[in-house]
Deep mutational scan, measured.
Amino acid sequence: CEICHEVFKSKNVRVLKCGHKYHKGCFKQWLKGQSACPACQ
């Protein structure tokens, strides 16, 4: 996960249209302050 830098250990992964992958919880937190993929912006 590019947000928390932890390895994906479960199926709790969100894959965006751009192809980047994040933990669902991390991405949900990210969206509270941002509106785009962290890696693409």
Rank of each mutant, 00 (worst) to 15 (best):
C1R: 02
C1G: 01
C1D: 05
C1N: 03
C1W: 00
C1Y: 01
C1M: 01
C1T: 00
E2V: 06
E2P: 04
E2K: 09
E2S: 10
E2C: 05
E2W: 07
E2G: 09
I3H: 12
I3T: 04
I3F: 15
I3N: 15
I3D: 09
I3Y: 04
I3C: 02
I3M: 09
I3E: 03
I3W: 03
I3K: 04
I3Q: 06
I3V: 03
I3G: 05
I3R: 04
C4L: 00
C4K: 00
C4Y: 00
C4T: 01
C4N: 02
C4I: 00
C4S: 00
C4W: 00
C4G: 01
H5D: 05
H5F: 08
H5R: 14
H5K: 15
H5Q: 14
H5E: 11
H5N: 13
H5V: 04
H5C: 14
H5G: 08
E6C: 10
E6G: 13
E6R: 15
E6V: 14
E6Q: 15
E6S: 15
E6M: 13
V7E: 10
V7S: 12
V7Q: 13
V7L: 11
V7K: 11
F8L: 07
F8T: 07
F8R: 05
F8A: 06
F8W: 03
F8D: 05
F8M: 14
F8C: 08
F8V: 09
K9M: 03
K9P: 01
K9I: 02
K9A: 03
K9Q: 02
K9R: 04
K9Y: 01
K9E: 02
K9T: 03
K9G: 04
S10T: 06
S10V: 03
S10P: 05
S10A: 05
S10G: 08
S10E: 07
K11G: 08
K11W: 05
K11S: 15
K11E: 13
K11H: 10
K11C: 06
K11Y: 03
K11T: 13
N12L: 06
N12S: 08
N12D: 09
N12I: 06
N12K: 15
N12V: 06
N12R: 14
V13W: 07
V13F: 11
V13R: 13
V13I: 15
R14V: 06
R14P: 03
R14I: 04
R14E: 12
R14C: 03
R14K: 10
R14L: 05
R14D: 15
V15D: 08
V15Y: 03
V15A: 06
V15I: 14
V15M: 09
V15H: 08
V15F: 07
V15K: 04
V15S: 09
V15Q: 06
V15E: 09
L16D: 12
L16T: 10
L16G: 15
L16P: 06
L16H: 03
L16R: 08
L16V: 04
L16E: 14
L16F: 09
L16S: 13
K17C: 07
K17S: 11
K17V: 12
K17H: 12
K17I: 09
K17P: 11
K17M: 06
C18R: 00
C18E: 02
C18Y: 00
C18G: 01
C18S: 00
C18P: 00
C18L: 00
G19D: 07
G19V: 01
G19A: 05
G19I: 00
G19F: 01
G19L: 04
G19R: 05
G19Q: 04
G19W: 02
G19H: 06
H20Y: 07
H20T: 01
H20M: 01
H20A: 02
H20P: 00
H20L: 00
H20S: 01
H20D: 01
H20E: 00
H20I: 01
H20W: 00
K21A: 11
K21Y: 11
K21W: 07
K21Q: 10
K21C: 10
K21F: 14
K21R: 13
K21H: 06
K21G: 08
Y22K: 02
Y22P: 04
Y22M: 15
Y22E: 04
Y22D: 03
Y22S: 11
Y22V: 15
Y22L: 14
Y22R: 01
Y22I: 14
Y22W: 08
H23P: 01
H23N: 01
H23S: 01
H23C: 11
H23E: 02
H23L: 03
H23G: 02
H23V: 02
H23W: 00
H23D: 07
K24I: 10
K24D: 15
K24E: 15
K24P: 07
K24S: 13
K24M: 08
K24C: 11
K24Y: 07
K24H: 08
G25F: 04
G25M: 13
G25L: 07
G25T: 07
G25V: 05
G25Y: 08
G25C: 12
C26L: 01
C26E: 03
C26V: 01
C26R: 00
C26S: 01
C26D: 03
C26H: 01
C26Q: 02
C26A: 00
F27N: 05
F27H: 13
F27Y: 03
F27E: 11
F27D: 10
F27V: 11
F27I: 11
F27G: 13
F27P: 10
K28W: 08
K28H: 10
K28L: 06
K28M: 10
K28D: 14
K28S: 15
K28Q: 14
K28T: 10
K28P: 06
Q29T: 15
Q29H: 05
Q29P: 09
Q29R: 14
Q29I: 06
Q29A: 12
Q29V: 08
Q29N: 13
W30Y: 12
W30N: 08
W30S: 10
W30K: 10
W30H: 15
W30A: 12
W30T: 11
W30G: 11
W30P: 10
W30E: 13
W30I: 09
W30M: 09
L31M: 11
L31R: 13
L31K: 12
L31D: 09
L31H: 10
L31S: 12
L31Q: 13
L31G: 12
L31N: 14
K32R: 07
K32Q: 13
K32S: 10
K32I: 09
K32P: 12
K32F: 05
K32V: 09
G33F: 07
G33T: 12
G33C: 08
G33M: 07
G33L: 10
G33S: 11
G33E: 15
G33Q: 12
G33D: 09
G33V: 08
G33I: 06
G33W: 06
G33K: 12
Q34R: 11
Q34C: 13
Q34E: 13
Q34S: 13
Q34Y: 04
Q34A: 11
Q34M: 10
Q34T: 11
Q34D: 14
Q34V: 08
Q34G: 14
S35N: 08
S35L: 08
S35A: 13
S35V: 11
S35W: 07
S35H: 09
S35P: 07
S35G: 14
S35K: 09
A36R: 08
A36N: 10
A36Y: 05
A36G: 15
A36K: 08
A36I: 15
A36D: 14
A36P: 14
A36T: 11
A36Q: 08
A36V: 09
C37N: 01
C37L: 01
C37H: 02
C37S: 03
C37M: 02
C37R: 02
C37E: 03
C37G: 03
P38Q: 07
P38S: 10
P38Y: 08
P38N: 04
P38H: 09
P38R: 08
P38I: 05
P38K: 12
P38C: 08
P38G: 07
P38T: 09
A39F: 06
A39K: 06
A39H: 04
A39V: 09
A39Y: 04
A39E: 07
A39C: 09
A39D: 05
C40I: 01
C40E: 02
C40R: 02
C40F: 02
C40N: 03
C40W: 02
C40L: 02
C40M: 01
C40S: 02
C40T: 02
Q41F: 04
Q41T: 11
Q41S: 14
Q41P: 12
Q41G: 13
Q41K: 14
Q41E: 15
Q41C: 05
Q41L: 07
